[in-house]
Amino acid sequence: MLEIPDTKGSITRALPNLWRASELPGLRSAGIKSDGIETGFPGLDDVLFDQGWPRTGLTELLLDDPGIGELTLLASALASLSATEERLIAWIAPPFVPFAPALAAVGIDVSKMLLVYPDNHADALWTFEQVLKTGACSALLGWLAEHELKFAEIRRLQFAARQGRTWAGLFRPTTAAGNASPAELRLRLWPRPGGLQLDVIKRRGGWPLSGIELDFDADIDTRSCLDTRHPADESCSG
């Protein structure tokens, strides 16, 4: 699934034990402790420096159309955080309503959700920063007004995120991919039937990667389109 660019095949062949900087597992075996929050996708964990979502610093998630699978990508980490930590999970200006029964169904404790709807960009930035500074949340998912967002502001958020122990996810459109960002980790999300395709634009301890494919448990797809249960069958349950 993941391809590490093999540039100098001859060297590898001559020195099979040579450690190359692009090999993250080598780095880990060198004694660097991984501290990430498992993403629930082993293929993704492998390419991330912390073997999961970073607990400090910003994680940028770039996508154009909401609903392509961004929440399923985060769901496993949110579920484990909400189960193991007392702290809240903050949603700052989410574009839609996080649907409580569906979150609960994937194991997220909805009583720990904190939804914040600031009126304007300045308030949203303030909220973002306060959540990170107080450390009262184990994770934060934020949507900011892209046209008002300045480089200096992202740097400030990244700085605040490095201080606390909060996994800070910032959602931005893919057009932002071309601009430099101080974020710790930047991922671009593409829709893919039954899953997601990811490009790693920026990561610690490694080069950018593209074309990581994630498969979601496609349980709904298994249900036939021609499910012709009569409404009367359901009336007894509903």
Binding site: E86, R87, L88, P98, A100, P101, L103, A104, V110, S111, M113, L114, L115, V116, Y117, P118, D119, D123, W126, T127, Q130, V131, T134, G135, A136, C137
Partner: peptide
């Protein structure tokens, strides 16, 4: 939870109590 309460109070004081919500199914 005292820190949760503090954060919630802080946000509600600045943004208004309506802007800060919890979720339940």
């Amino acid at each position: 939870t005292a820190t949760h309460a503090e954060l919630v109070d802080l946000l509600a004081a600045k943004l208004g109590a309506e802007a800060v919500r919890g979720l339940c199914s």
